[in-house]
């Protein structure tokens, strides 16, 4: 005798556990009054250099901290540690992205209400981080002038799930014949209306505009 298999409806998000934890983190950040911004990009697009310069600037008037994700080494945390005393490395081993659980664990012992900004540098990867909510208020995707202008078309999901795009290494744009209009057009193909900023961490060009954008989050969400 054969029995008919039963169909059991589940209808649950596969990353439910991460989503729930990310929601809790977002609420914790909101209550503590800290603005949390995450950064995603491919390896070598200049996340750490950009953050180093940004933190040195913002650190003059704001209380900042950073979490840095990498598969191995704490080199990036050591670099950012020169700009800010509150930096922690998250070493993921073989995992190609940060998740909400890693963020929660890395925050252990930090008093969030003593911070204005928390920056999260994700593992250099344009694919995997797109599926994981970290509880951040803003996700910034970086694309450097030394990469192809068609990166947004090759990695549409990460661009679509980000809030702001930052084109870095603009000081090299001439040397690489980077087509800024094509890059902007491609970004807007996969994420219409997205704000795009151009910076050079090396020369400092465009950094004031980025600083202004982030400082605007402090006005929008004052400490409660």
């Amino acid at each position: 005798m054969t029995t008919q298999p039963r169909l059991v409806e589940v209808r649950a998000r596969i990353l439910k556990e991460n989503d729930v934890l990310a929601r809790e983190l977002r609420e914790r950040f909101r209550q503590a009054g800290v603005s949390v911004i995450s950064f995603v990009s491919s390896p070598g697009s200049g996340k750490t250099t950009f953050l180093e310069k940004l933190m040195a600037r913002l650190g003059e008037r704001h209380r900042i901290a950073a979490l840095v994700g990498d598969l191995a080494t704490d080199n990036d945390a050591a670099r950012l540690g020169r700009a800010c005393s509150r930096v922690r490395q998250i070493t993921t081993g073989t995992i190609c992205h940060l998740d909400a659980k890693m963020i929660a664990a890395a925050l252990e012992g930090w008093k969030l209400e003593e911070l204005d900004f928390l920056f999260i540098e994700n593992v250099g990867n344009l694919v995997c981080p797109s599926s994981y909510d970290l509880g951040e208020e803003m996700r910034v995707v970086l694309l450097s002038a030394t990469e192809g202008e068609d990166k947004p078309l090759k990695y549409p999901t990460i661009f679509n799930t980000s809030d702001v795009a930052l084109i870095t290494k603009m000081d090299l744009a001439g040397a690489t014949e980077f087509d800024r209009e094509a890059a902007r057009r491609n970004i807007h193909m996969v994420r219409p209306g997205m704000r795009v900023l151009e910076v050079s961490a090396k020369s400092g060009a465009g950094m004031a505009e980025v600083e202004e954008l982030f400082a605007g989050l402090r006005v929008a969400h004052p400490r409660i």
Binding site: A12, R13, I14, P192
Partner: peptide, 22 residues
């Protein structure tokens, strides 16, 4: 050609159902 979007579906990552033998 409005460059705005309101995504109704396409982001799903859902465990929908299971087929179980009794």
């Amino acid at each position: 050609i409005t460059p705005e979007q309101d995504i109704l579906s396409g982001r799903e990552l859902e465990l929908t159902s299971l087929e179980i033998d009794s």
